[in-house]
């Protein structure tokens, strides 16, 4: 075997930035969170590389969820846009961003979502874009509705859009949810509140952006996303 190539890893997340896996207030964690602590491993080649999926996966209306069917979906038309950066402020270019969401009534176009809110024949709720050379992305969609779920008595999810990002490395992979400003449902939502650091929690809340609204067309919300940054020093494996 040849000697390992020294690799600069990605910095670990600061305490409180990500939710713990074991969070009893969110009941589904009960049988799914591992009981054993994970083994902390240093980053090697497989971890500092990752799929650089870009334009080859994009369809013509993937960036505009209001144009995927014969008619327009019901609801408030919005633009959701922002920049994908790493924690050193460097843009993350050419990276696939995937989203999925409920319709304006809070119902997902999914066989297992059967709460009695209407489906919208003109809305599926899935989208994807690729960031540009400076890390910017933009979707057009409709504002999703809140929806009830069985987690606790009278539990409602705040309106949210699910986001999936690859970054440039396996270690930067992130799945998160974007929320809307001033939602009165935040206080009772264990998924939102599973993030220990209140400042970090606010980083999941988009900002209304009047400048970016499209007059006579759509409201706009800015959602910047920050992925892990890189260590400065490559790690050299001990060897004989």
């Amino acid at each position: 075997m040849t000697l390992p190539h020294p690799v600069a890893g990605y910095r670990p997340a600061p305490d409180g930035a990500h939710p713990p896996l074991d969070f009893p207030e969110y009941r589904s964690t009960g049988l799914r969170a591992p009981a054993q602590a994970p083994i902390v491993v240093r980053h090697r080649l497989t971890e500092v590389t990752g799929p650089l999926l870009a334009g080859e996966r994009l369809g013509p209306s993937d960036h505009d969820l209001t144009t995927q069917h014969a008619g327009e979906p019901l609801g408030q038309r919005i633009v959701v846009f922002g920049r994908v950066l790493d924690s050193d402020g460097r843009a993350v270019p050419d990276t696939l961003v995937e989203i999925w969401q409920a319709n304006a009534a809070g119902r997902y176009a999914h066989a297992r979502d059967n709460w009695p809110a209407p489906l919208d024949p003109n809305f599926t709720g899935g989208g994807r874009v690729v960031t540009d050379a400076t890390g910017n992305y933009s979707f057009t969609t409709i504002k999703p509705g809140a929806y009830p779920w069985g987690n606790h008595h009278n539990a409602w999810r705040p309106a949210h859009i699910h986001f999936s990002l690859f970054g440039r490395a396996f270690t930067q992979r992130l799945v998160t949810q974007m929320y809307f400003p001033d939602d009165p449902l935040f206080a009772q939502d264990p998924i939102f509140n599973s993030v220990p650091d209140p400042k970090a929690r606010q980083r999941m809340v988009a900002a209304f952006d009047l400048e970016a609204t499209r007059p006579e067309w759509a409201l706009a919300f800015r959602f910047d996303i920050v992925l892990r940054g890189r260590e400065q020093t490559p790690f050299e494996e001990p060897h004989e």
Partner: peptide, 12 residues
């Protein structure tokens, strides 16, 4: 910059 937190993918 502070990291964007992770959230569950949910059932859908």
């Amino acid at each position: 910059l502070g990291l964007t937190p992770s959230q569950t993918v949910g059932p859908f």
